[in-house]
Design a protein around this nucleic acid. Structure first.
Lengths: 219, 219
DNA sequence: TTAAAAATTTAAGACATTTTTAAGATATGT
DNA sequence: ACATATCTTAAAAATGTCTTAAATTTTTAA
């Protein structure tokens, strides 16, 4: 994801990256970047000289939201500022005007590190529901959910397929290890329990929608 | 590990890093760095202007041997060369003369990426549990714990991954040297014994949480 | 409007995993 | 080789989770 307010530079970066085999998403402000949903972002290129909110805040929120490497593009030469960005979770920076090859090299190094050393932070989000695959924990509205193994796997499946309908047989297939027995009420009971726990964290939202005769969906 | 042929700079780096909480190992050539055995290296600082073998070769071999982030220190401003180093697996570089804060920031950013084994300090803490790696001792609430070898390693693993769930198979893999046999009760018994010993030091806290069907976590 | 089908919820019993204890097996140090 | 500590195994008790069943509510379609 490219976050850069200058239209021309944004377009230029898009062309550079796509001609090097990457798929890109463009945003034109940090806040817009934070709002991006449902895209599989693996790295963020962030122009830190943005109007509006401070760069610090934006890095923190981007990190929290997308949890991927962030490379800062900046004209700032001041080292103190650099150090600050680093300590906030920025993973690297390039100073403008930057050399294309160097930028590509840094992007490559960051992406390589990810897949290479299994840092693949397996944290998923949907609205204010967060799934942490590594720790087998989930939270809603910042509150830890106390889920059993099946409940966790079921919620995880729904989050992984948020906005898509999960059929009952697909759920039985992936959460339980057998094909469904259609007259089985087990899944319904588990959904009921998850809903109850989500309600305790955030009473105002109905996360799981029932698709009659088909299955369930996060909406 | 610091790999730098200039004695003075090597010593200076050692002082800088150790005064910032890191433990260091010094080597004075790339080949010497490759030969280092038995040390728990988590990052390599490499001066690329070394006599003898080419930098390219050395990075590749260091990476192969130690499999950790490599930060290049170099006076080269030529971008093409930088790109080359990146594509060989270097994770970052600083140009000499470098700013100490920037170097520390880049080291921090690289280590932060790796979970658990960030700053290598021989003493680990979680709440009032303290692990002393050098002496193979542990304490809780200031009282020495009398732990067996497996108990110590198990508690150490939990402390290293505090707030994260350790799966049973991961524990068997790292504390015992074989994959788990799922019906095995050994781990449970060891957890039980550790809990009992922790309880004797501090009866009010339940340190080790059971993640049903998954494993354990310090919480 | 009404009957049938599907889904929700609750509670209880079935099932599975974990905890604890104790004893026998194995490893370690003198 | 002996004494000691540690580890593993086994079994029962405790606890957590899953499924089933039944009553209730919601939705669909005739």
């Amino acid at each position: 994801m490219i976050i850069e307010d200058d239209n021309e530079i944004n377009r230029m970066l898009k062309i550079l990256l796509e001609s090097n085999g990457y798929t890109t998403s463009s945003a034109y402000s940090g806040t817009e970047g934070i709002l991006v949903h449902g895209k599989d972002i693996s790295l963020i290129l962030l122009d830190i000289m943005l109007p509006g909110r401070s760069g610090d805040e934006i890095i923190r929120e981007l990190k929290e939201k997308h949890n991927v490497p962030v490379i800062i593009m900046s004209a700032i030469h001041d080292i103190d500022k650099k150090v600050n960005l680093f300590s906030l979770g920025a993973d690297d920076y390039v100073t403008k005007p930057f050399n294309n090859d160097e930028l590509l090299a840094r992007i490559g190094a960051r992406l390589r590190g990810k897949t290479g050393q299994g840092i693949v932070s397996s944290s998923l989000k949907y609205r204010d529901i967060e799934i942490d695959n590594d720790n087998f924990t989930a939270s809603c509205a910042g509150i830890k959910l106390d889920l059993s193994k099946h409940e966790f796997n079921l919620l995880k499946l729904l989050v992984e397929n948020s906005e898509k309908t999960c059929t009952k047989s697909m759920i039985y297939d992936r959460v339980w290890d057998y094909e469904n027995s259609a007259d089985d009420n087990t899944l319904n009971v588990h959904i009921s329990k998850i809903r109850k726990k989500l309600r305790e964290c955030n009473p105002d939202t109905e996360y799981i929608k029932t698709i009659w005769g088909i299955g369930y969906r996060l909406t």
